[in-house]
């Protein structure tokens, strides 16, 4: 796999930026090139937070994505905005506990996971993004679960490292869903 172009999108507070950083860090641990571009402009104020993440075998040209091979949508405005970005055959991951419509595209692979609901049952809504990421790495193979765990250690401040076993449990729930 030469290059994976990913867009992560959802509400502010759903851990969208963290999800992008985790995949980018895991990508570094894979020994690959990565870029992470957060949204910081006016679109942040319109209900979606998003970031563009590229993991590649080669040095990365533009960090901005005009199309993507993977879109992870955690709310309805994100699906509405980014479904059209997917290349044919691309992967769309939907948090079905928060998105009440089916995708329009028929030329893509769609995975729906009630991630927020599962996270709620686990007792911590903050795990929803990681559940989604579990499915993402299972279907794309962009990074391994082992390197994802390594990424968690880098991204989470030390005082939150006690959460890592629970995060990994959430990841596996997503992988197996």
């Amino acid at each position: 796999m030469a290059q994976t172009d990913m867009i992560f999108a959802g509400f502010g507070g759903q851990g969208i930026q963290a999800a992008g950083k985790l995949i980018a860090y895991a990508g570094i641990l894979e020994g690959r090139h990565v870029s992470f571009l957060p949204s910081y402009g006016p679109e942040m104020r319109g209900g979606t937070s998003n970031c563009h993440v590229i993991v590649s075998d080669e040095p990365i040209g533009s960090p901005i994505l005009n199309s993507a091979t993977v879109v992870m949508a955690m709310n309805r405005p994100s699906l509405d905005k980014f479904e059209s970005y997917l290349e044919p055959g691309g992967i769309l991951l939907i948090d079905s506990s928060l998105i009440n419509r089916d995708p329009v595209r028929t030329d893509i692979r769609v995975f729906t996971i009630p991630a927020t609901q599962i996270a709620s049952e686990m007792g911590n809504l903050a795990f929803a993004n990681v559940i989604m990421l579990g499915k993402l790495i299972k279907e794309t193979g962009v990074v391994t679960a082992g390197n994802f765990e390594g990424g968690l250690k880098k991204v989470l401040p030390e005082r939150k490292h006690y959460l890592i076993p629970e995060e990994m449990k959430a990841l596996r729930i997503g992988m197996d869903y």
């Binding site: 950083k21 980018a24 570094i28 090139h33 990565v34 870029s35 992470f36 571009l37 957060p38 910081y40 990365i60 960090p63 901005i64």
Partner: peptide, 10 residues
């Protein structure tokens, strides 16, 4: 530019 300032890379 804003993009370079905001983006993360290795």
């Amino acid at each position: 530019d804003g993009m370079l300032g905001q983006m993360m890379e290795a």
